[in-house]
Structures are given as structure tokens and as C-alpha cells.
Nucleic acid binder design. Structure first.
Length: 432
RNA sequence: GUGGGUUUAGCUCAGUUGGUUAGAGCGCCGCUCUGUGGAAGCGGAGGCCGGGGGUUCAAGUCCCCUAAUCCACCCCA
């Protein structure tokens, strides 16, 4: 093969392909999207979609200039002759909020629940559960600060994943407070760690200036020793009165609904616009970080993009990571079903008739036909490989008498059906 | 950006201390089998041994570079 697919991308393959795993099975992707649609739309979310590329400025302002996403993971799009400065979107929220503001969706009754799905792009090195083009399901609620909205969002994220048959997920829940709370906490951490600089790992020395909260979930043993020695207080101790009450309310609702979660003080959002409630969904099967998805409240984002104050909250999970988790649990998703009926003609002059019957039968069911005349033995072999439930071979006798011999490929039983009755019979067979 | 493993047919893999026409199983196509499938037998197609350079009389095999892939770090979905 002369040309391979670009690094960090996957082809989505039809059922039956060699090397097929759930994360590249096109029908599994479709099933995730359909399940998300069902669960989210029943909860009142409406589907919308935004472009795959946006102004670079949107992502810089929306995601934050100090994040790794902006510093080293953006794909710049160079190829629009009349206008430059576009990038492939690295996440969904900035575009959703941009579209909300630009299209006047503030006119719709608030809070407005939206959802979308599609590819995201990050220029990262590849490993398990991490790609350069990956896909997310995304849920956003705009126009409310109510803690009930937070709790419902978290519960819905769990609902979608559960509806797919995944069981081993954990919600890690935290609150990063309001901006002043976070500033206070970062100041506390800097004051605490700076005198012990020489005991921190090199990575954490860097974190101390860029994002001190990251030190707390460092994988380095020396960092963890130091954290224990210094008896570092958790972020939750620094929440202001309002953020604290809000967080208590979120937990009360989750408790009332029986949504399980673990309080995790080390929850840190990588994106600058988060406020208050922040959470992640974890599963063992998805790779080193084990995060299936994450979410949080972003009340400051709209204003940061130059719009009015519009509170918001949202989450996203990675479809590939979800499929890895399902695969790890051995959950199988429904694939594309085979045809209900496979038709073949024995003689070249009846191929056209087979095609005509198939085309009219497609009004009620999935029906395929052979493009060349086939001997009965080969016709049934073919029908079997295509996973048809029924097969019929048309010879001169059937053509003259205007009938089909429908053969059940599992039981081997045959029954004769008049062509005029075919669609009625197929409808019955489809329904049982 | 960094570190380690891997790369031979569509798939899973053999291939000896370098030795001349690179193999198997599965899959695919055909035949045995001109009105009834899942089996068996026989035959066929399909490889610049990831790419480039080097050593050698001779390289799938040894050396260097490069790419892809897998896993991990940073970070994230």
C-alpha cells in the first residue's frame, strides 16, 4: 500500500471487516449516537451542529491561551485562499456557545438544552484511547445557574453510558469554585510548595507556575510524598459560601436520585472557562488516564467570547474511549442486520425479474438480489454469507407460476408464496 | 516534544549461523456439483518482506536513517 491513513486517525469499517474492533466498527458508532440521541432528546435536548473549523481566536479565548490544547495541540488550517487563521476544533463547547450567541438562541426558552456529536482534532502523539481525530458526544445547557441543572447533566451522562450497557463507570466529582476561590487556592498551593521546590519533580516545578492544582494528581512518588508531608488542604476547603452551597445542592440531588459518585478533590479542568461543578467519568478499559469524558460549569465563557453573561454547563465523552470500555467489558452492540430476503435467478433471463421483485419488496423490508444467474447451491451459500434470514431462487417454473419458494436459512423449511402476497408475508416475517 | 516494543499475502503468523524460485492456516475466486446452503477434495489469484541508504559474491535475515503502529510520560476525550 502506497498511502496510509494519516497518523492518529481511524477508518470506520463495515461489519465483518478483518481486524474489526468496536472502536472502528461503523455500526457501533452509529449505535452510540442513536442511543445518545434517544436519552438526551427525551430529556429535552435538541440536536444542533457547528463547523469542524472555527476562527483560531474563538478557541484561544474560549479554551484559554495557557492550556496545552492551545499551546501545542491545535491544527491550523492554511488552505482557504481568502481568509486564514482557522483551526480544526479541539472540543465542542466553544463552537456551541459561539453559535448560540451568533444565532440569537437566547430567544429560545431558557434553560436551553443542546446536544451534538462529531469529530474533534488535537495534534497529539498517539496512544491508547488518544487520537488526533476523535469523536465526541456533547451536551450543553445554557441559561441557568441552577444546581438542579448540574445534577441532571451528570445523571444524563451516566444514563447514556448505562443505556449502552456499560457498567464499570465511576463519576469523580469536585468543585473548582468561583474564580476568586480558585485564585485563593492556587496562591495557597504556591506558598506551600515554593519553599520545597527542590523536592518537586521537574514536571511539577513547571506546574507550580502554570497550574499548581495539577501537582496534586502527579504520578511522581516524590511529589506524592511531599503532598502527604505538607498535609495539603483540598480545593473544597477554599470554596466561597455561594459555590459551597451550590455544590452541596448538586450532591443532594445526586444522592436523592441514587447516582453514585466519588468526591475527588484533585479534579482539575484543563480548560480555563470552568467554574464550580466539575466531574469526570472513569473506566479501567480506556488507557492510562482512564477518563471516558468530563464536564463542568462554564458561567464565564459567554462573556469571555464577547457576549452577554450566559451561564452554562456541559459535558462530552469520547466515543472511541467509550467503545474501548465496552469492548473491555465484553459488551457487544447490535451490528447491521443482514437482509430479510436474498433473491437469485437461475437463468440470465430471470435476473431482471429477481431485481424487479426485490425492488418492490424493499417497500417493506431489506431485500438483496444476485446480479448474475446462480446455481441454487451457490445462491444459498451466498445468502448465508450475507447473513440473510430467507432466500429464494427463481427458475423458469417460479417465473411462470409467479411464485417464490421462501427458504428459512436457519430451519431449512420452505414455503411457497405468491408474488402478489410477498410484501404481506415479508412484513409478517420482519415482525417476528 | 520524550522513552520503549513492533512492522513478511486481505487476516493471524513461520522463515535456521546471511545462500539463490519467500511459506502455512484462515479468507477470497473457480471446479468437483446444469433446481437447494453450512462439509470435504482439487486448483487459482494475491508479496518490491513498511520506505531509503549501507556492509557483502549474496540481505526478509546484519548496520544506519526514516515512516507507520502499539504502549507510556506531559496533557487530555
Amino acid at each position: 500500500m502506497a498511502i496510509d491513513r494519516p497518523k492518529g486517525t481511524k477508518d470506520h469499517l463495515p461489519d465483518g471487516s478483518p481486524k474489526l474492533s468496536l472502536d472502528v466498527q461503523a455500526s457501533a458508532f452509529a449505535h452510540v449516537q442513536e442511543t445518545a440521541r434517544r436519552v438526551l432528546e427525551r430529556a429535552g435536548a435538541q440536536f444542533m451542529a457547528t463547523p469542524l473549523f472555527e476562527e483560531a481566536e474563538l478557541v484561544k479565548r474560549g479554551v484559554g491561551g495557557s492550556t496545552d490544547i492551545v499551546r501545542k495541540e491545535m491544527f491550523t488550517v492554511y488552505y482557504f485562499g481568502d481568509h486564514g487563521g482557522f483551526i480544526l476544533r479541539p472540543e465542542g463547547t466553544a463552537g456551541m456557545v459561539r453559535a448560540y450567541l451568533q444565532n440569537g438562541l437566547k430567544q429560545l426558552p431558557a434553560p436551553l438544552k443542546l446536544w451534538t456529536h462529531g469529530p474533534m482534532f488535537r495534534a497529539e502523539n498517539v496512544q491508547k484511547g488518544r487520537l488526533r481525530q476523535f469523536h465526541q458526544v456533547d451536551y450543553e445547557v445554557l441559561g441557568s445557574t441552577d444546581a438542579l441543572v448540574d445534577a441532571e447533566a451528570i445523571a444524563l451522562m451516566v444514563d447514556v453510558v448505562r443505556a449502552l450497557g456499560l457498567s464499570g463507570v465511576r463519576v469523580k466529582l469536585g468543585s473548582i469554585g468561583d474564580p476568586a476561590d480558585r485564585d485563593n487556592y492556587n496562591e495557597y498551593l504556591r506558598g506551600l510548595f515554593t519553599p520545597h521546590l527542590e523536592h518537586l519533580s521537574d514536571d511539577s516545578k513547571d506546574r507550580l507556575t502554570r497550574n499548581p492544582m495539577r501537582i496534586l494528581d502527579s504520578k511522581s512518588a516524590e511529589d506524592q510524598d511531599l503532598i502527604r508531608e505538607l498535609a495539603v488542604r483540598p480545593m473544597l476547603d477554599f470554596l466561597g459560601a455561594e459555590a459551597s452551597a451550590h455544590f452541596a445542592e448538586v450532591q443532594a440531588y445526586l444522592g436523592a436520585w441514587g447516582v453514585e459518585y466519588d468526591l475527588d478533590p484533585s479534579i482539575v479542568r484543563g480548560l480555563d472557562y470552568y467554574r464550580r461543578t466539575a466531574w469526570e467519568l472513569h473506566h479501567e478499559g480506556v488507557g492510562a488516564k482512564s477518563a471516558l469524558g468530563g464536564g463542568g460549569r462554564y458561567d464565564g465563557l459567554s462573556a469571555q467570547l464577547g457576549g452577554p453573561e450566559v451561564p452554562g454547563i456541559g459535558w462530552a465523552f469520547g466515543i472511541e474511549r467509550l467503545l474501548l470500555a465496552l469492548e473491555a467489558e465484553g459488551v457487544s452492540l447490535p451490528g447491521t442486520p443482514g437482509p430479510l430476503l436474498y433473491l437469485a435467478a437461475m437463468d440470465a433471463e430471470n435476473v431482471g425479474l429477481a431485481a424487479q421483485i426485490a425492488r418492490s419488496a424493499r417497500a417493506v423490508a431489506r431485500v438483496e438480489f444476485a446480479y448474475k444467474a446462480q446455481k441454487p447451491g451457490n445462491a444459498f451459500k451466498d445468502a448465508e454469507r450475507r447473513r440473510a434470514r430467507y432466500a429464494a431462487v427463481i427458475g423458469t417454473d417460479e417465473a411462470l407460476r409467479r411464485v417464490l419458494n421462501l427458504k428459512n436459512l436457519v430451519s431449512g423449511e420452505q414455503r411457497e408464496v405468491a408474488l402478489d402476497d410477498l410484501n404481506t408475508v415479508l412484513t409478517e416475517l420482519e415482525n417476528n
